[in-house]
Amino acid sequence: MEEKKPFVKINNISMWYPQKSKSLSQVIKREKQWVKAVDNVSLELQKGEILGVIGESGCGKSTLGRALARLEHPTQGDVFIDDVSTQNLIKQDQRKFRRTVQIVFQNPFDTFTPRDTIEKILMRPLKLHGIGKSEEERKQKCIDILESGGLKPAEEIMKRYPHELSGGQLQRISILRSMLFNPQFIIADEPVSMLDVSVRAEIINMLVTLSREKDATVVFISHDIALTRYISDKIAVMYLGKIIEYGDSETIINRPQHPYTQALISNTPSIDLDEIRETIKVEGEPPTPVNPGPGCYFAPRCFKATKNCFKHYPDTVELESGHLVSCSEI
């Protein structure tokens, strides 16, 4: 396979939050407790690729998304888009950064200002970024983009307020709005988990078509494994702030290697009745990401754990080309 240069390079990004000292001794010694929501995550994405990030709630997948969109300043690490450091870019030209990177949130009802009409909501960013020469031109652009997403009649919809539209329509507008500037890198944080199953499909299909059309790179964050498989080219599995397995989506789903991924997939209920799967039992619940380790974070719950697992965090091994696993038992 030809080695291509990654378009988006996530380099050792970490997001730590300080925790209030709980005990007196901690206060005296000034020991700081850290919640390591995202811990040294490195990933590479090709242009136009869709990467799915899956994991349980609290594993840091949304925090990763927020850090990538620079809604939070990562504790360390940087993201390079086409060899440009976003850390520098956001300092020098924040607007340009926002035009390059966009995020779609989970809850469409919270995304929009309730007091503004859709027209105002869509026109404001265009004006701020100085796109379009006149008001009419900007309005035409809004109409075009709404109609490209199947929202017709666009002029009628633009007169409405967010509460007058359904969740599915709002989420469409949210996705279309993020596409206004032809962003190169889109982060979709659980974009359909608030929506009903029957409207999900259309929105997902729209997201895929639009990002393919614009050749944008997408990070798709979700807890729904089947949906992630449907949409993504690559999948990364997160557990307690770390990526534990990464690879082609089919490889991850059909031949998971990390015990956690195996457990996660085997416990996902399926509508296929013929499929017989052995579910893998996992003890307990995910621990808090406050000073985890040493050793593999999953070891206390792992069915394959040996003494070795508790000593130091396992290195990442490349099993086959592009399939990375962090487990010492493989």
């Binding site: 359904s166 409207v199 499909a201 789903i253 059909n254």
Partner: peptide, 19 residues
């Protein structure tokens, strides 16, 4: 047809139009 499957071929999700 709106629910993606974990196994087998990837089929296009169709969904239901309207609300």
């Amino acid at each position: 047809s709106s629910i993606p499957s974990l196994s087998g071929e990837k089929e296009t999700l169709t969904g239901i139009k309207g609300h």
